[in-house]
Write a protein that binds this DNA or RNA. Sequence first.
DNA 1: TCCCCGATTAACT
DNA 2: GTTAATCGGGGAG
Length: 197
Amino acid sequence: MGARLTREWFARTAPEVAPALLGRHLVRHLVDGTLVRVRIVEVEAYEPDDPASHAFRGPTRRTVSMFGPPGHLYVYLIYGLHHCVNVVTGPVGYGSAVLIRAGEPLAGHAAMRTNRGVDRLDRLCSGPARLAQALEIDRSLDGSDLVGDRRVWLEAGEPLPPDRVRVTRRVGVRVGVVTPWRFVETDSPWASPARGI
DNA sequence: TCCCCGATTAACT
DNA sequence: GTTAATCGGGGAG
């Protein structure tokens, strides 16, 4: 469904890349050969001077990939049991990324149902940790290159027109609430459950 | 070294 | 609406 997004495409600030990622396809080649495809419907941007960002205090062992070249994955463990998938943006050393929060399952439904342990399509990828679990993405994929890796990549898909993009505050962050950097497809049934936003 | 807590989810009441 | 699960990051000392 279109060519891979290029290195240059990712080399912008996170708030620029984030809404442009809506409607794009996140594709995962599982170890067993299954191809899983998800249409991105919800994202959040994180910037270097952003107190809610893992990059805020500079690079650490965990966040090193966030400061690397754009177009790579940054994957982290949260609450000791969930993984979250991010796309690194900006130039080398910048420290910005876009969190992929939810997607519409397009292919590989059976594998995703198995990975998630649920049947309902709208529960497979409707949240950052759910999406990571459905696509079998964990710390072992941290730093993988979306432009060249065989296991995971991003395709052009069909970008959303601006009037289909809703902008809100980010979910679950206690600081950095002044920046409305969550971008979600308007009225999408595939987005994460609205938590008062 | 210690200690608090998080870009979450599911299962409670 | 509330809470347990579960663990490593990173600031404090």
